[in-house]
Simulated assay, not measured.
Amino acid sequence: MLDTTDAALVRELQHDGRVSYQRLSELLGISREAARARVQRLLQRGEVRIVGIVPPAVAGITTVAHVSLDVAGAGRPVAAMAAGRRSTSFVSCTAGPQSVLAEVRVADGAALEREFAALRAIPGVRGLEVFRCAELVRDAYSPEVAGLRAGPPPELDAADRRLLGLLQLDGRASFAALAERIGLSQPATRARVLRLLEEGAVHVTGLVESRALGVREAAGVGLGVRGPVRPVAEAAATLPGVNYVATGYGRFDVVCGLDAPDRSVLLTGLEAVRALPGVSRSESWVHLDIVKESYTYDLPID
């Protein structure tokens, strides 16, 4: 578990992964050297990773689906094979109606159909149940996301895309190091990075190892909704513990992800989601083993 100061550092890094040590010093009331040492210790222990999260549309991803895999026999081998697909961003073994759940992110509907075919072909898979996302109201690790139906993403040239690829790997890389990799001057590189941040092409954040935060439980819940769906999704996104909300069609109208320090808190979160006005039915599942969780995309780095 993190101590009070480290927890405060983590919150600031989640908000802005490129925040300066001087600013951290001012915010937390510690010396600049102490702020640097604490951040470096968190990074070295693997409790925090600073990465650039690129919104799906910016990376050319316009189609997202949650796929529940009906498995005959053991789920772990199926989950491992699903996790090996480049298109899967999240794969888990669950306690719920189906034993394996995967989130698939691809460029378009045709690519999605190809992924469905590949998942069906995994030995042991008897069939799929699909929730296709219409809009990501709250995406994992990103405080705000543009919906999948929103306007066009920022226009990017080759240098911009290389910068995004590098920031996905190391969100705190110095402007000098980035400039050397993309072959531009440091001032030009700094201007590009600031523009990409301002335009929402990337959000640099601290990804925290769940157990360092005391998170021991994770679950998902699918909702059926009476009437307008968006108000229910927006309300769910404000609830404590909810880290992911998507609207869509198929099995559900809304899908949410939650985490909690223990089963009691998890149950409280699930009950709060189920009790939202407009919810007509719900189905939940507990993530017993998160096999894959990756929100990076294939972007050039050289």
Rank of each mutant, 00 (worst) to 15 (best):
R36F: 07
G46L: 10
T189S: 05
L207T: 02
T238A: 14
P152A: 15
V91L: 01
G257D: 08
T62A: 14
P123I: 00
A74F: 05
A35D: 09
E217Y: 02
R49T: 03
G200A: 07
P55H: 05
A150M: 14
S294M: 06
Q22G: 10
H203A: 04
E199S: 13
S185W: 07
G60S: 07
V221D: 02
Q40D: 13
L299D: 06
T63D: 09
D298R: 08
S280P: 00
V91H: 05
N243C: 07
Y21V: 08
E180A: 13
R36K: 05
R105C: 01
L112T: 06
V232Y: 13
I182T: 12
T88I: 00
E180N: 06
H15Y: 09
A177K: 07
I61M: 14
L163Q: 02
V254T: 05
L27C: 06
E113F: 09
D289N: 07
V125A: 08
G248T: 04
Q44R: 14
V255F: 13
L270N: 05
R192W: 11
I301G: 11
G75C: 13
P143E: 06
L148W: 14
D139K: 00
S210T: 06
A57D: 04
P231C: 10
G151V: 15
S282H: 15
L169S: 12
S210Q: 11
L24M: 14
Q98M: 02
A150Y: 14
A275E: 08
R281K: 04
R132Y: 06
R114Y: 13
T238N: 08
V104G: 13
P187D: 03
E144V: 14
V78A: 02
E199W: 01
A118P: 13
T5E: 10
G17W: 02
F175L: 13
V204T: 12
A219F: 12
D108V: 12
L163V: 01
E209Y: 11
L288S: 12
A134L: 03
L276D: 05
L166A: 07
A107R: 07
P143R: 09
L178N: 12
V225E: 14
G206Y: 03
F175P: 01
G214F: 07
V48T: 12
V130F: 02
L288H: 04
P123R: 00
A179D: 08
A140N: 01
R195Q: 13
R211C: 04
A134K: 10
V232R: 15
R132M: 10
